[in-house]
Nucleic acid binder design. Sequence first.
DNA 1: CCAGACGTTGTT
DNA 2: GTCTGG
DNA 3: CCAGACGTTGTT
DNA 4: GTCTGG
Length: 239
Amino acid sequence: MCGRFTLSYKSKELQLELGLPESQLDWQPRYNIAPTQPIASILRAETKKIEFLRWGLVPGWAKDIEIGNRLINARSETIMEKPSFRNAFARRRCLILADGFYEWKKAKMKGAPSQPYYFHLEDKKPFALAGIWEIWHAPDGSELWSIAIITCEANEILKPVHDRMPVIFDKNQMFNWLEDRPQIELVEMMQPYNTEKMKSYMVGKAVNSPFNDTPACIEEKKQSGLLLIKSRSFNAPIV
DNA sequence: CCAGACGTTGTT
DNA sequence: GTCTGG
DNA sequence: CCAGACGTTGTT
DNA sequence: GTCTGG
């Protein structure tokens, strides 16, 4: 799944890297973007304009915004059938701008904390996550624009950590996702990204709290001394 | 017909 | 809103 | 995704 | 344990 990600690029650099039109928008680098927060998205291929939508899709039928708090992901395998997602999939696909994301590996021991890992492209370039968006009309008459990130099976670099991952598009493919295309082509686009072009490493517990949003979240955590000694003695006993 | 779900994740 | 279950 | 709350009454 | 909030 995908429950936290980063966008450490500032708007100017991101525009240059992805060939986006100039915009007045500006933001601080983000190292720990969490559900319910506004996320940078592109809804239309024609304008490539960046807009911020709430992460957590609130379906049109919802009576309450809280329903969106758990709809942060949509499974690519079933997105066409689900009442909450299928209309958005057909008509409201979007890109979510990112340069990395986190996944947690569950501890084998019950109650032990999960270990977070950071995933990014080998060249550290920005990319897009596949998404769908929706407009919800609140009871008070206001509009809420919200988003879900599409997930697929994990590729080989994710598998040791987690069995799901977000659908990733690099800058060469991303705008195809926004075009009107036959459904079969859209389905084929929702595939695990090329493992060879990704990297990952362990990070510390800073990322666990959504209140921590600093470069400390993406700092590499070296394997602990205890684990090093264990693996060394296991693999290469001292003579 | 009306009532109630509609979603993902992980865990048991 | 729309579909499923009773 | 993880962190943190989770409840009522009456009184100060 | 389960739900809400970020």
